[in-house]
Design a protein around this nucleic acid. Structure first.
Lengths: 239, 239
DNA sequence: GATACGTTAAATGTATGACATATGATATTA
DNA sequence: TAATATCATATGTCATACATTTAACGTATC
């Protein structure tokens, strides 16, 4: 039996898309750089404009480049950020690949760890940032901004962990949760009164890792309970 | 000052892409469903084929649909899976948005937790699966398959956690690590001798959560050390 | 000289028509 | 009945024309 291998008819647009994608991954084009224009790509690949455009459209859709039109326009390589991770998490939640309970549990597992790491890395500057964020928690703005102020401490702690991946996960989960709960705009006094982070902050500033971890866990458990209560009430008043 | 808002000139292809995307998110089209054909979309949106094709290409690139050509072909909605999360992690690592050390640390933080959850949920059937995976760890196949056999226990434990998000994170990290280390194909006897998971498995089957956690942590610390050593040796022999 | 304005050029965006190719369904034939 | 040819329906590619957007340059006006 001869070992023939099936030929895969790859679409020209995919082929070109892949070549450009790899060039970006290999650092041939850095963030901010402009890919060759459509005309140039037509020349380079000896292929029709349709194909070139569809290839670039694919890169744009997968978030690798941003297209600007007009003179000096073109496909510019975007700075890769952890935003993409957040988007995927959001989509997975929207498509019901993970439940609200799972998201909350994941957070409950991960954030205490992150708080512990933050405590181990705490510097005086970071301590001051935490205090400031804590003071600002009292302010009431419009809904999304208020949510952001309440979450600020979590964001700072995530960054203090010194681990960009863990930080991104924590932030992604936070965003999924706030977006999911936004529809019934829970009142902050009920679900998240000011000063709720004080114990965590104190422990972190004292560089007491295990206590920071414990306080964070306690905080998240309480928060989840409160959220549950508010959500039940919301469903009751709606029906 | 009148409150004029800037008009955003949205591209037709993006507009249509968004409408289709939202329809999918809202469940108007389920996994396996076929979107209207290009002709139909032209009619529906009263727009050129160019635009329709670019819109669909965008959906394909973001992994929402799969395009089949030929009769009975078209754009079919893909089943959303956690594979997308893995891909993003891989890309973030490739683009150096997170270091190997960060990936290892994240794993060291998360997997012990997952092992603990797995222990709490362990059933007799799961126990048997673990034992079987452990037995198969001795086999030596070609490189990637061998790696898979060595990791199988981790995959099973991840699923046993009962939390699809945590499971997906663990699997993603595993894949990033194995892909990153594949280039110097570390010999398994050195870096990951068979039987290394025995203590973890025993603790999980005994439903002893805290011990499973501790054993997993110990295992990962040892594994990281061995990996470091092998990597140093590799760099030495290369230069 | 500074500012407003028009012109131009370079790039992407859209429309249209033609043909190529892939592929399932169906009819035809040995 | 089974292989084969044909057909219909999709998507894939090409080519051309025109529209639109936008930065840069030049020019007139004050």
């Amino acid at each position: 039996m001869v070992n023939f291998t099936p030929v895969k008819q790859i679409k020209a647009s995919d082929e070109i898309g892949n070549q450009l994608r790899n060039a970006i991954f290999e650092g041939k084009y850095l963030a901010g750089d402009k890919l060759p224009s459509e005309r140039e790509l037509i020349e380079l690949f000896q292929i029709s404009r349709t194909v070139v455009r569809e290839a670039i459209k694919g890169l744009e859709a997968s978030g690798l480049v941003e297209i600007k039109q007009g003179a000096m326009g073109g496909a510019f390589v975007k700075l890769m950020t952890f935003e993409r991770l957040t988007n995927v998490c959001q989509e997975l939640f929207t498509m019901e690949k993970m439940s609200f309970a799972e998201v909350c549990e994941a957070r409950l597992q991960i954030e205490p760890m992150v708080a512990k790491l933050a405590a181990q890395n705490c510097t005086p500057e970071m301590a001051e940032k935490l205090r400031e964020a804590s003071r600002n928690e009292e302010h009431i703005l419009d809904y999304p901004d208020t949510v952001y102020l309440r979450q600020k401490v979590h964001y700072i702690l995530a960054d203090m962990s010194g681990n960009r991946f863990l930080a991104a996960i924590v932030k992604s989960l936070l965003q999924v949760i706030s977006k999911a709960t936004a529809k019934f705009e829970p009142s902050h006094e009920k679900v998240h009164p000011a000063g709720l982070h004080d114990a965590i902050i104190a422990a972190v500033i004292a560089q007491n890792g295990s206590q920071a971890e414990a306080e964070m866990r306690k905080h998240l458990q309480e928060f989840t309970l409160m959220l549950d209560a508010v959500e039940k009430e919301y469903r009751y008043t709606e029906k």
